[in-house]
C-alpha cells in the first residue's frame, strides 16, 4: 500500500474540490458509494456474499464445522475472522501470509461481529464441553478501490445472515440458519485536511491522514471503533464520526438488512 505515489496534479485537484465541499465522483462528503451484493454465490461454503461498494469488491465465505470448545466457555461456539489482501485485488498487494494491514482489517471486522453479539454463540453448542460449532469468516479482497473495512464488514454480515449450520452433513438433524441477533454495521471515514469524508475511495484514502471506523448495532449503540493512520483526529471529528455512523448505519441497514 505504501508503494503508491500519487501525482501532485491529482492530489491538488482532489484538495481543491474538497475545499468547495465536493468530491471527484460528485458524492456528498457524508455519502457512501452504491452497495450491490449477491449472497449464496459459493455452493461449497455454508454462507457467502460477493459485494461491491463502488468499485471496491470483495468476497466473504463462511465455513461452519464442529470443533472442541475453549475450556473457559465450554458451551459457546467459536468465531474466527480472517482477511487476505490478494495480489489480484491491487498491484501493490503481495502474496504471502497476511500482513499487518490484512490482520488489522480482519480484527476490526471481527470485533464488530463479536462485540455486537451478532451471532448468539450460546446456540452453537452441540454437546457441552465436548463439541461446538466453529464459525470461520474468511474475507478476500477482489478489487481494491478504498475502504476495505466497510466492504469487508458488509460482505461478512450478509454472508453470515444467509449462512446455514450444516447439521445434516454431520448427522445432527436438519440444517438451521445461524442464530443472528442483530446487524453490526461499520461506517468508515477518512480525514483529509480538516474534512472527514465517508467511504473514501482509493484516491481519497491515498491523500488522507487518518481513518476512523465506527460500528453500531440495530439500536444505534456503539459496539466497536478503530482509529487508524498516522494522523490525528479531534474530539469534534470523533463526534461527527459517531453521529454519521448512527445515521448512515441506518441507511445501510435498509440496504443489506
Amino acid at each position: 500500500m505504501s508503494d503508491y505515489i500519487m501525482s501532485q496534479i491529482k492530489r491538488d485537484h482532489l484538495l481543491n474540490l474538497l475545499a468547495d465541499g465536493r468530491r471527484a465522483d460528485s458524492r456528498r462528503l457524508d455519502e457512501p458509494r452504491k452497495i450491490t451484493f449477491e449472497t449464496g454465490v459459493i455452493e461449497s461454503a455454508d454462507g457467502s456474499c460477493h459485494l461491491r461498494l463502488g468499485d471496491t469488491e470483495g468476497m466473504a465465505g463462511i465455513k461452519i464445522i464442529p470443533g472442541t470448545p475453549y475450556m473457559d466457555a465450554p458451551a459457546d461456539g467459536v468465531i474466527t475472522t480472517g482477511a487476505e489482501l490478494i495480489p489480484m485485488a491491487h498491484p501493490t498487494f503481495e502474496s504471502g501470509p497476511p500482513d499487518e494491514n490484512a490482520i488489522e482489517l480482519a480484527r476490526v471486522v471481527d470485533r464488530g461481529i463479536r462485540e455486537s453479539g451478532m451471532i448468539d454463540v450460546k446456540k452453537l453448542c452441540i454437546k457441552e464441553g465436548e463439541q461446538i460449532w466453529m464459525v470461520y469468516i474468511d474475507i478476500y479482497a477482489l478489487n481494491w478501490d478504498g475502504n476495505l473495512f466497510d466492504a469487508a464488514n458488509y460482505a461478512a454480515v450478509c454472508a453470515l445472515k444467509t449462512a446455514m449450520v450444516p447439521n445434516k452433513q454431520y448427522g445432527f438433524g436438519d440444517d438451521m440458519p445461524l442464530p443472528i441477533t442483530c446487524l453490526p454495521i461499520s461506517v468508515t471515514e477518512a480525514k483529509i485536511g480538516n474534512d472527514l469524508i465517508v467511504d473514501p475511495n482509493f484516491d481519497e484514502e491515498a491523500i488522507s491522514s487518518a481513518r476512523m471506523t465506527v460500528t453500531t448495532d440495530d439500536n444505534g449503540n456503539f459496539r466497536a471503533m478503530q482509529k487508524g493512520g498516522k494522523g490525528s483526529i479531534t474530539r469534534g471529528d470523533l463526534s461527527l464520526c459517531l453521529d454519521r455512523a448512527v445515521e448512515i448505519g441506518k441507511q445501510i441497514r435498509t440496504i443489506i438488512g
Binding site: R111, A224, K227, S232, T234, R235, L238
Partner: peptide
C-alpha cells in the same frame, strides 16, 4: 488530538 482510539 486523538492519536489512538479503539472500542469494543
Amino acid at each position: 488530538e486523538i492519536v489512538l482510539l479503539q472500542m469494543d
